[in-house]
């Protein structure tokens, strides 16, 4: 009986694992086979069109990265800082429990609500308009709870013996955090950052309301107050509101480009980093 159920479980789990892989590959195949043929340089780097066919997504591609980098620049220091504080400094207390609960609630807020909030606060009240900075700030709110969570969990996962060993050598708390705990948890932090970056690259609801659906007349435009439609937003825009006759091709191309970008980030940055890190720390 035990042997049989073990067999069944083994087969079932293998099946589940393989079907996840199959779904992923099927998805990649559909997206890429439809989109890749459109990815001529003129499309990837060209300017968009409003009425005529043959528009590109150059500015959108640039804006995607620009907004991503800005939002990471805002949310990484805050998120890691808060995570370190929660894990290493905050005493167990109703107030810190409240902060932890708030972060968790923030993490489950639907992104469109963040979008609305961003539009009300950054776009309207602060008068930033539909802008790259407005989008980046709102996107940071989406990233923040995850970064806080990942940082706290990673630090809590480290053995207490590191803290003891470091303290016994006369290190201050901050020296221990800076020289032992953070470097040791780099892998977890990078995983969290990759996760957040992928989500941010694909985010549309927030950015429709805060960064807008139009782009500068020239690219790349580093002005953070310019409106900055991103690739995902463009994908939504051409399909739902666009007037161009080749909206479908543009959407397929944008989708493939997005997937490629995320794949490239993962394959060229996250994986080699992980490999290098494992080797250098010997784990």
């Amino acid at each position: 009986m035990g042997k049989l159920s073990d067999r069944v479980a083994t087969i079932l789990l293998w099946f589940i694992g393989l079907s996840i892989l199959a779904i992923l590959f099927w998805f990649l195949y559909r997206i890429l086979s439809q989109g890749l043929p459109h990815l001529a340089p003129r499309f990837v780097f060209g300017m968009p069109e409003e009425i005529l066919p043959g528009g590109g997504v150059g500015p959108q591609l640039f804006n995607s990265f620009y907004i991503l980098l800005l939002s990471l620049a805002i949310s990484i220091p805050l998120g890691i800082g808060a995570g370190v504080w929660l894990a290493e400094y905050a005493k167990k207390h109703w107030f810190t429990d409240l902060i932890r609960l708030s972060t968790e609630m923030l993490a489950s807020v639907p992104s469109i609500v963040f979008g609305l909030f961003g539009m009300l606060v950054f776009v309207t009240v602060l008068g930033l308009g539909f802008s790259i900075i407005g989008g980046a700030l709102t996107l940071s709110l989406l990233n923040l709870p995850i970064l806080v969570r990942v940082t706290e969990e990673t630090l809590r996962g480290l053995p207490g013996s590191y803290r003891e060993a470091s303290a016994a050598l006369g290190a201050t708390k901050w020296q221990t955090i800076k020289s032992v705990l953070l470097p040791t948890s780099l892998l977890g932090l990078i995983t969290g950052i990759t996760l957040v970056a992928g989500r941010a690259l694909g985010e549309s609801a927030i950015l429709i309301f805060t960064a807008g659906v139009s782009v500068s007349r020239f690219a790349p435009d580093f002005n953070v107050f310019a409106s900055g439609e991103t690739l995902s937003v463009h994908l939504w825009y051409v399909l739902s509101e666009g007037l161009v006759p080749d909206a479908r091709e543009i959407a397929e191309g944008s989708a493939a480009l997005l997937v490629l970008v995320i794949l490239i980030i993962n394959l060229c940055l996250a994986l080699p980093f992980r490999y290098w890190y494992r080797r250098s720390s010997g784990r």
């Binding site: 053995p159 013996s161 590191y162 003891e164 060993a165 470091s166 016994a168 050598l169 032992v180 470097p183 040791t184 720390s281 010997g282 784990r283």
Partner: peptide
């Protein structure tokens, strides 16, 4: 200085 029950080198 102090040495502990379980060897606790840093992962460096």
């Amino acid at each position: 200085g102090m040495v502990f029950q379980r060897p606790n080198p840093f992962p460096m």
